[in-house]
Amino acid sequence: MGYKLNFSVIWKNLPLLLKGAWLTVEVSTGAILVAILVGIVMGVAKTSRHQFLRFPAAWYVEAFRNTPLLIQIFLIYFGLPQIGLKLSPFMSGFAALVLYTGAYNTEVVRAGLEAIPKGQIEAARSLGFTEIQTIRYVIVPQAFRISLPALSNNFIALLKNSSLVSVIGMVELTFIGNDLTAWTFRAFEVYGAVTVLYLALVFSLSWILAIIERRIRLLI
């Protein structure tokens, strides 16, 4: 075989690859923040006493969790323009990541809210707290603490899933990897390096999130 491994292509293009990794971090962090907001709003709606809130939230979760993210990306980027809503590759990819992860976050928030023992609410009400005060001081801090590990997992899944937006031309680590392969023909080295970079991102993110979890546990 004529192929000789040549890793110099990686060293030469390392700044570009690192830039791709940084873009992946930026996109994922932005998307998780919005997706947590989505999760809180929809999660509260899903535990609501009112059917007209519960019902749409439940269907949002089921629709986005039970279809592939790739199809959602294609539907938003290629499909929506046909009904008059044209979004840039960045906006399409970002929206798909937020909606997909938001559905998973909704379930996490719902479970967090439901995990709080009834006795906690009774204790708060028996001390004279209003409903709002009970939510603010007793339910939210506990639900947040309960939800944090699962939200961290969703963040890490999101970081990996963000690789899919490369297929519609949103620039991040995978896109840059494909690009680099296309003009260097060094698929093994480039995809190897990109894989290592993803692994490094996932490990550092898990590590940082574990520290944040511990801090927050101490804070509230």
């Binding site: 192929y3 060094r186 698929a187 093994f188 993803y198």
Partner: peptide, 24 residues
């Protein structure tokens, strides 16, 4: 386990489909 769970599946596919031919 960490490599298969810690990297995007699409990257694993690219690596196997486009990258492995380099090793014959």
């Amino acid at each position: 386990m960490e490599v298969t769970r810690g990297t995007p599946l699409i990257m694993q596919m690219f690596f196997i489909f486009f990258g492995l031919p380099a090793l014959g």
